[in-house]
């Protein structure tokens, strides 16, 4: 069963093409990494899935339905964890925001939601910080709070936009171990710059730079990662993986797909 289905999707902003001819199918319990250069359209792709943006052409279906129906099946962790640091809100209240349902405003049993929010914080080892003001936490701690906020609505699908940007290298490994555990129950999409760290955990990779190139598990676990390529935009993937000029692991050159 596919949880995300994108077909022939185009998106332009202010006359500039951001994404073109996107086809993507994500199956239940997949762990997909989305990599690509800055400005390549990774975040836009997530926002299209969330229904925050509407495609100019083509379709997006989440569980067979158009996105934005708010049936709480998507958890979203935004890229910017540094927003609104002086805002008067505790970590617990941030997480409770993830359980809020405007259609069911005066629901009973607030205690149940509070307990679920505390459980979500505990799961991310942030239980001790529940009553701390969000601005007093470190970037990595805030990141965990935002993940707890995404998890508290029991989503089937978790979208994370550059989740390790504020976490050090050791923390990153722990973080992906955590995602691997969550992946047993939840489909996960992670936007990342760095394929090296996540290649061990994911079962598919999508390279996004206006176009989308999908590489399934066979390609990653096969000889692809053992092979070192000197990556240039022209001769391998249109995606710069780590930095210019450094040889590093990349996926095999894209075949000429029909949609290219």
């Amino acid at each position: 069963m596919s949880i995300i289905e994108m077909k022939n999707l185009d998106f332009a902003y202010a006359g500039e093409t951001i994404l073109a001819s996107i086809n993507l199918t994500v199956k239940d319990k997949d762990f997909l990494a989305i990599i690509g250069p800055n400005g390549g359209g990774k975040t836009t792709l997530l926002k299209l899935m969330l229904g925050l943006l509407t495609p100019d052409r083509g379709t997006v279906l989440i569980n067979g339905k158009p996105p934005g129906n708010t049936d709480s099946s998507i958890g979203y962790v935004p890229q910017n964890v540094h927003m609104n640091q002086s805002f008067p809100i505790s970590a617990l209240d941030v997480v409770l925001m993830g359980a809020f349902d405007p259609k069911n405003r005066f629901r009973r049993n607030q205690a149940k939601y509070k307990k679920e929010a505390l459980d979500a914080l505990d799961r991310l080892e942030m239980g001790d910080y529940a009553n701390k003001k969000i601005g007093t936490l470190s970037g990595g701690q805030r990141q965990r709070v935002l993940i707890a906020r995404a998890l508290v609505s029991h989503p089937e699908l978790l979208l994370l936009d550059e989740p390790t940007a504020s976490i050090d290298t050791k923390g990153q490994a722990e973080f992906y171990e955590l995602l691997a555990i969550l992946n047993k129950e939840i489909t996960i999409l992670v936007v990342s710059h760095d394929l090296l760290v996540i290649s061990r955990y994911v079962n598919a990779v999508a390279c996004v730079n206006q176009r989308l190139h999908y590489h399934d598990q066979a390609e990653i676990t096969g000889d692809m990662l053992e092979t070192m390529y000197s990556c240039t935009v022209e001769d391998t993937c249109p995606v710069e993986l780590v930095a210019h000029g450094f040889p590093h692991r990349v996926l095999k050159p894209h075949e000429d797909h029909a949609h290219d």
Binding site: N84, I89, M97, D101, R105
Partner: peptide, 23 residues
């Protein structure tokens, strides 16, 4: 008072509020 959770969500993180269905 009535719209407190909506106002809170919008003020803290407008995008997330939209995802939660806040108008």
């Amino acid at each position: 008072f009535f719209y407190y959770p909506d106002l809170l969500a919008m003020s803290y993180d407008e995008e997330f509020a939209r995802i939660r269905g806040v108008p």
